[in-house]
């Protein structure tokens, strides 16, 4: 999304002249602010799923994993966590590249982030397959529903994040983004970091606690 507010073309004809440049009454850029607010909404979505987690685990007092010999692969997921965290670093690196006008860094960073993110998703899906084969489907237990619900919700966000990053990568390779104008990397980046932090919460509450 970009703001029509920032657009002006001075045509002569009354009908076709653009809007007057909007006064920017805040130091924050609209795009950034928009993304931040969007993230607030996202946090609340996760909040609702954590509410479900809280009610089923604490209020209803259903015991938590391992439940009738269904255990969650703490270690594998731990490694996966490390992978996602590192993808945040590469993302940061890419953005720095963009800021310093170092196109090679930008592209490499984005591609690496994409790969790491994809790996994370793959491991996650793999974990699902294993668990379902062991018989832990969302259908057997409310705890299972919460587990698949929370991790699945997060997985969906990783996917969206990857999508946004793909756009950014495509444009990076098409030669977009300059030290002045790199919002297209920055904004998806913020989202990616958010997805990352969210995972740490999900991991610690669902797997560890």
């Amino acid at each position: 999304m970009e703001a029509a507010a920032l657009t002006h073309g001075a045509h002569a004809h009354d009908e076709h002249h653009g809007p007057p440049p909007a006064n920017s009454s805040s130091r924050v850029e609209p795009q950034l602010l928009g993304m931040l607010l969007f993230i607030i909404s996202e946090i609340m979505v996760f909040g609702a799923f954590f509410t479900a987690y809280f009610f089923i685990r604490v209020v209803a007092g259903s015991d938590w994993f391992p439940v009738d010999d269904f255990a969650l692969p703490k270690v594998v997921a731990g490694v996966n966590t490390a992978i996602l965290v590192s993808s945040s670093l590469t993302m940061h690196w890419a953005l720095e590249g963009a800021k310093r006008g170092n196109r090679a860094h930008l592209r490499a960073g984005l591609v690496l982030t994409l790969l790491l993110g994809a790996t994370f998703l793959f491991v996650q899906i793999n974990e699902y397959v294993n668990l379902t084969q062991e018989g832990l489907t969302p259908k057997v237990l409310a705890q299972g529903s919460v587990f698949y619900g929370l991790t699945g919700l997060h997985g969906a966000h990783v996917f969206i994040g990857l999508l946004l990053l793909t756009f950014a990568t495509v444009r990076a390779f098409r030669g977009h983004f300059t030290p002045e104008e790199h919002r297209g990397v920055e904004v998806p980046g913020i989202y990616w970091h958010f997805v990352d932090v969210m995972w740490i919460l999900v991991y610690s509450s669902v797997y560890l606690l």
Binding site: F55, I56, V59, A60, S62, K139, L141, A142, Y148
Partner: peptide
């Protein structure tokens, strides 16, 4: 077939 609200399966 999730069981969020199925008290029988530990839901609330």
């Amino acid at each position: 077939g999730f069981r969020f609200f199925d008290s029988g399966a530990g839901g609330d």
